[in-house]
Amino acid sequence: MAGTVMAGTVMNVDELVAIDVHTHAEVSADGHTALSPELLAASEKYFGAHGHRQPTIDEMAAYYRERRMAAVVFTVDTEHATGHPPIPNEHVAEQCARHPDALIPFASIDPWRGRAGARAARRLVEEHGVRGFKFHPSLQGFDPNDRMAYPLYEVIEELGVPALFHTGQTGIGAGVPGGGGIRLRHSNPMLVDDVAVDFPELRIILAHPSFPWQDEALAVATHKPYVYIDLSGWSPKYFPPQLVRYANSLLQDKVLFGSDHPVITPDRWLADFDKLDIKPEVRPKILKSNAARLLGLTKEG
């Protein structure tokens, strides 16, 4: 199960102030980028991050260690839809393994790989210490409830690690003619509801405030016991009021801090989160304890 993978590491959860469940490895040690130059430029423009330097995984570890935080790190495998080779999952896992006090590796497998992808998922968890999987339906060009992805979900559920799905609009491809070929409809959280039904023990994270489907995401997370929401990709000052209301009440044990680093830094996110009307007893749940429990870093309960 997921809780056994990190045994023997030096991560001290009690000393952490927060766990960021959504950060991107945008560049490998040899300079290969996760996105094509066109899509990367569109993303930078969307987030107002022109010229931001893409940190290496070693640099990300130093950044989070300095802040007494841990971070989930992943890339996105979009080769089927975009033709751009991904940063290898093994590279992400190996680099994160150098920093077990600060970094938690997730992997990304293109669901179009079918059963070969399912075999790769098992190997990545069992041999490389991967702790979860990232999907970006719009970038990967698939509906989450497409049964071609089900062999992959089956393995992820069996291994007991989370599946994180991008939901809502994406800045990647924004402003490019035709959106760079990226279809937003794939990222409607209601498509993930089918996955939650068909894989009832699978831990699922719906990434981002799911514009324009925020209410749908809240409905799925309140209805399905193992569906969570991360708050990445937006400054908290722009959160829809219903998201804040549910985070303060019905979903207080299922909402997770995520930044979307490096396009949004945790410094900026946390500064704006400090000004949000969140109950004092709920704030530490969102920042750390919900993620620590979900990721198997602390015991359930």
Rank of each mutant, 00 (worst) to 15 (best):
A2I: 14
D14I: 00
E15P: 04
L16S: 04
D30F: 01
S36I: 12
P55R: 13
M60S: 06
A62S: 15
A62L: 14
R65E: 14
R65F: 03
M69T: 01
A70W: 02
A71E: 04
P85C: 11
I87H: 08
P88N: 10
E90F: 03
D101Y: 06
D101M: 02
A102V: 13
A102T: 15
I104W: 09
D110S: 04
R113P: 01
A118W: 13
A121C: 08
A121K: 08
E126T: 07
V130F: 05
D143V: 06
N145E: 13
N145M: 09
P151W: 10
E154G: 04
I156M: 14
L159F: 03
G160Q: 07
L164M: 15
G175M: 05
G178Q: 14
L184N: 05
H186T: 13
P189Q: 08
D193H: 12
D193G: 07
D194W: 03
P200R: 02
H208Y: 04
F211Y: 14
T222G: 06
T222D: 08
P225S: 14
P236R: 08
Y238Q: 02
S249K: 00
L250Y: 07
L251E: 03
F257Q: 05
G258I: 11
G258T: 08
H261E: 11
I264Q: 12
T265Q: 02
P266R: 02
A271T: 11
K288Q: 06
L294S: 01
G296D: 02
E300H: 10
